[in-house]
């Protein structure tokens, strides 16, 4: 019996005379019900949506209940979710809150753009060349341990209580962490990519531009996205000191009049803007580097 005949015989036995009809006669396998607590298993989209709703709903329910069971005096200091949303609506409708929001956005984005403009090239060079790292590394690591908020008095003396001092504080708050992250991202580029470039005859500048930068770009984009979240957290600190406008200033004024609903509305607004920024960065990354997401 030749090899091909053996194979044919095996195939015949497996499929039988009817082939497909035998498949239908085979007993239907009923898988066990998907358990909620299954190690590392992803819930179905429908289930995930229900869980998300339950999580969020529980949070608002506890909040609402906390408000409901507080004494009349304390209720003023612990407004309900509805009161906070109402306060947020009133801020926009009657108090031109949009101008403050835009001002805050401007401060975060402008300072962050400046920080990125310095940190990305610096980090790329430090991550690519050990000599640049030796030059700038100690300086950058030392700066990272200086709390940005401690510069407020200095910045106020230098620039006065204006936009410049706020932008400078936000800039200082992220720049050194951002440099450190970009250095890590650049150093994570596999050596073989660089060596492949060199053996193909790429010059050092070509290797940097054509290989290191695109290879590190998705990770750098992630670093930027994570650090702009930090920038949003510095915003309130920057706007506490002598600010007339911006979300932080509105919240500080509300604090003076014990308007807790407005303070909470401000916190909520920053949260919303944070999520929006995150989505914005993800979208930019997806559109500009489709290769890093397509699988």
């Amino acid at each position: 019996m030749s090899a091909s005949t053996v194979q044919e015989a095996i195939v015949e036995r497996a499929t039988g005379a009817g082939g497909r009809s035998e498949l239908n006669e085979s007993p239907i396998y009923v898988p066990p019900r998907a358990r909620i607590f299954e190690f590392r298993s992803k819930p179905s989209p429908a289930r995930a949506a229900v869980f998300a709703a339950v999580g969020l709903g529980a949070f608002f329910l506890v909040w609402q209940l906390g408000h409901y069971f507080s004494s009349d005096v304390n209720q003023k200091f612990f407004p309900s979710p509805v009161q906070v949303l109402t306060a947020l609506y009133t801020l926009f409708a009657a108090n031109n809150f949009l101008a403050d929001v835009l001002k805050s956005c401007y401060r975060v984005f402008a300072s962050f753009a400046l920080a990125a403009l310095v940190a990305v090239p610096a980090g790329l060079l430090m991550g690519s060349f050990k000599s640049v790292r030796a030059l700038l590394g100690p300086l950058v690591s030392a700066w990272r341990y200086l709390p940005a908020a401690s510069f407020i008095p200095l910045l106020l003396v230098w620039f006065g209580p204006n936009d410049t001092s706020k932008l400078a504080l936000l800039f200082l708050g992220v720049i050194f962490f951002l440099i450190a992250l970009v250095v890590d991202n650049t150093e994570a580029v596999p050596n073989e990519f660089i060596e492949a470039g060199l053996t193909m005859g790429a010059s050092r500048s070509k290797t940097l531009m054509d290989i290191i930068i695109p290879a590190a770009a998705p990770a750098i984009m992630d670093s930027l996205r994570n650090m702009i979240a930090v920038s949003w957290t510095y915003l309130v600190i920057a706007e506490i000191v002598g600010a007339q406008d911006g979300i932080g200033a509105v919240m500080m004024r509300a604090g003076r009049f014990l308007k807790v609903d407005i303070i909470m509305a401000g916190i909520l607004m920053i949260g919303i803007l944070g999520v929006f920024t995150d989505v914005l960065f993800r979208t930019i990354a997806r559109l500009s580097m489709p290769w890093a997401f397509k699988r």
């Binding site: 060596e195 053996t199 054509d210 290879a215 290769w291």
Partner: peptide, 28 residues
């Protein structure tokens, strides 16, 4: 130093993920 006269293939995959297969081959 390295030279394109001596092409090198590494154990680690060095096809550049940011270029399509075609652009990868064109790059050299």
């Amino acid at each position: 130093g390295p030279s394109p006269e001596r092409g090198m293939l590494f154990q680690a995959y060095t096809s550049f993920p940011w270029l399509t297969a075609r652009r990868n081959v064109e790059y050299g």
